[in-house]
Amino acid sequence: MMNFKQKSAVILVFLGLTVQLSLAQKIPAKKQVLKTLQLTNAYFMNKWPDAGKSIVTNKERPSNIWTRAVYYEGLMSLYAIKPERSYYDYAVQWGDKHQWGLRAGVTTRDADNQACGQTYIDLYQIDQKPERIRDIKASIDLMMNSGKISDWTWIDALQMGMPVFAKLGVLYKDDAYFEYMYKMYKHTKNVEGGGLYNAKDGLWWRDKDFVPPYREPNGEDCYWSRGNGWVVAALVKVLEIMPENAPHREEYLKTYQEMLKALVPIQRADGFWNVSLHDASHFAGPETSGTALFVYGMAWGLNKGILEEKIYRPVVVKAWNAMQQQAVHKNGFLGYLQGTGKEPKDGQPVSYTSMPDFEDYGLGCFLLAGTEVYKMKR
């Protein structure tokens, strides 16, 4: 039987844990969220003052590739809530340095090469200089004229390509962009590899190589965190961009809701998600990019009033606080960020201090998440 002192100690521990849990569930003030976003962004802008400088890892690549395009998506979201002239100028410099062109030219069908078009179109809408939209429109129009719809063979491509079609559809008031986007999406979802979306689990296999009989070490299906995050982001952007009466909107919304429902029970106790969503023992540990994309999707849904507050708000707040407190370094560097790849084993080991092969896309995901958390009601 415990004496008074022992009982008191237990009560104090319990109260301490309760306070910690309460603090973990409290959403930071808007000012604090913005401060974190500006810190992480400043780290990157200071490190890469020349927006046109090539990126050298295992080889040299131009800076208009998909990794940098995702960063600029995040930067434009930050610019929307904090319209600093330096953010706009940095994005314009990126477009200018590449002459508003696409890697591999207008004939490219690779969504990774077209992802830069998202920011090009955003900047065109701010200042309608024809060169800003010339090449991305030409590339998408060539794809549509070809009639081929099987290019998006991996789920990351949905985030890289779908928003471009949606933005052009709105800009030109032409449903043909929406319809072609849907045909390509449906091929990825229902045909590619037998269909990359598993409606039963509400999650996606990254590409045909991961469709069963492929299994994770624990025997479960392989659902890669960031891959599913890309799909969440694609659906959020399309739903945000398209008019309420746009074709196929309800199907996108349904899949978005199914995915988020599936993500809630597999969130880690610390607030992150594992790189392997159904095998917590396979390269387990915090990971920032997938977590940020899930936060982006959930916070957006809360802000739009289409997700249930009591279910999703605690999940979002816990995940955001985890990233802000555990992943962000004092100088703005982001830790726990998996490098490029397509499955849990790639870019490992992932740690607080590990440096990914590209720093840009992870920051883009984080900025997308943070801007939606910033908009959440207090």
Rank of each mutant, 00 (worst) to 15 (best):
G169N: 06
V170C: 02
V170Q: 00
V170E: 03
V170L: 03
V170T: 03
L171F: 14
L171N: 07
L171C: 08
Y172G: 01
Y172C: 06
Y172L: 15
K173E: 15
D174E: 08
D174W: 14
D174L: 06
D174G: 02
D174H: 06
D174K: 06
D174R: 04
D175H: 13
D175M: 04
D175L: 07
A176F: 05
A176K: 15
A176L: 13
A176D: 11
F178W: 13
F178D: 04
F178N: 05
F178M: 09
F178R: 04
F178P: 00
F178H: 12
E179C: 07
E179I: 11
Y180S: 04
Y180D: 10
M181A: 14
M181D: 12
M181I: 11
Y182N: 13
Y182Q: 07
Y182C: 03
Y182K: 07
Y182L: 03
K183H: 09
K183C: 03
M184G: 06
M184T: 15
M184A: 15
M184R: 15
Y185F: 15
Y185K: 02
Y185N: 04
Y185Q: 06
Y185G: 01
K186W: 01
K186S: 04
K186N: 03
H187G: 00
H187L: 03
H187T: 11
T188W: 10
T188D: 01
K189Q: 11
K189Y: 05
K189W: 03
N190K: 12
N190C: 09
V191L: 08
V191Q: 08
V191W: 03
V191C: 04
V191S: 05
E192N: 13
E192D: 10
E192T: 14
E192Y: 07
E192P: 09
E192K: 13
E192H: 05
G193M: 07
G193A: 04
G193Q: 00
G193I: 04
G194S: 03
G194L: 09
G194K: 01
G194F: 08
G194Y: 06
G195D: 02
G195L: 05
G195E: 02
G195I: 10
L196F: 06
L196H: 05
Y197K: 04
Y197L: 11
Y197S: 02
N198Q: 11
A199P: 01
A199V: 13
A199T: 09
K200Y: 02
K200S: 11
K200P: 00
K200H: 08
K200Q: 09
K200C: 02
K200R: 08
D201G: 08
D201Q: 04
G202R: 07
L203W: 04
L203G: 06
L203S: 07
W204H: 12
W204K: 12
W204P: 08
W204G: 12
W204R: 13
W204L: 14
W205T: 01
W205G: 02
W205S: 00
W205K: 00
R206Y: 14
R206S: 08
D207T: 08
K208I: 12
K208V: 11
K208Q: 12
K208M: 10
K208T: 10
K208F: 10
D209L: 15
D209E: 14
F210S: 04
V211T: 13
V211A: 02
V211I: 15
P213N: 12
P213Q: 12
P213M: 15
P213Y: 13
Y214I: 09
Y214T: 11
Y214C: 06
Y214A: 11
Y214W: 10
R215P: 00
R215G: 01
R215Y: 14
R215I: 14
E216I: 04
